[in-house]
Amino acid sequence: MDNYLDLLKLVLPPFLVEHFDLIKSRKKKEVLHLYFEERNNPPQEHSTRLLVSKGFHKEVTIQDFPLRGNTVYLHLKRRRWIDKDTSQLVQRDWNLVAQGTRITTGFAAFLKEISQYEGV
């Protein structure tokens, strides 16, 4: 299984492999669609809180770099949690991920911007 993850990290943004599960793929002609859901691992900065997963935000679609002549679309469903004590909505802060791991700051800015459109 580690070889599979290492291969995925070479062709996909590493943060996808670390924070998301590939749940489905679909190839039609020269277009590849990859569907991801964020894992149910609450953000580390909220580890002292009692969080319960409350589903996902609306799916977003991002065109990624082509692979072997195929157009690639990444379909991402980001998870949200509710603090059981305060009923506050919690989601991963992609700016912190950008500082602490390998996600690009540009992609973090994109995720932050789409968060604003979701009314969160």
Score class of each variant (00 low, 15 high):
Lys29Cys: 05
Glu30Gln: 13
Val31Leu: 13
Leu32Trp: 10
His33Phe: 10
Leu34Ala: 07
Leu34Phe: 12
Phe36Asp: 01
Phe36Gly: 02
Arg39Asn: 13
Arg39Val: 11
Asn41Cys: 04
Asn41Pro: 00
Pro43Trp: 01
His46Trp: 02
His46Ala: 08
Ser47His: 12
Leu50Met: 09
Val52Thr: 05
Val52Ile: 07
Lys54Trp: 03
Lys54Glu: 03
Lys54Thr: 04
Gly55Asn: 00
His57Cys: 06
Lys58Asn: 10
Glu59Gln: 08
Glu59Ala: 13
Val60His: 02
Val60Asp: 03
Ile62Leu: 03
Gln63Lys: 07
Asp64Tyr: 14
Leu67Arg: 11
Leu67Cys: 03
Leu67Gly: 02
Thr71Asp: 06
Thr71Lys: 14
His75Leu: 04
Arg79Ala: 14
Trp81Val: 03
Trp81Tyr: 07
Asp83Glu: 07
Lys84Trp: 14
Thr86Asn: 02
Gln88Tyr: 06
Gln88Ile: 11
Val90Gln: 04
Arg92His: 15
Arg92Asn: 12
Arg92Leu: 15
Arg92Phe: 01
Trp94Phe: 06
Trp94Leu: 02
Asn95Arg: 12
Leu96Ala: 04
Leu96Asn: 11
Ala98Met: 08
Ala98Thr: 05
Ala98Asp: 09
Thr101Trp: 12
Ile103Thr: 02
Thr104Asp: 12
Thr105Met: 12
Ala108Val: 04
Ala108Thr: 06
Phe110Asn: 00
Lys112Met: 07
Glu113Thr: 12
Glu113Ile: 10
Ser115Lys: 04
Gln116Asn: 10
Gln116Met: 08
Gln116Arg: 10
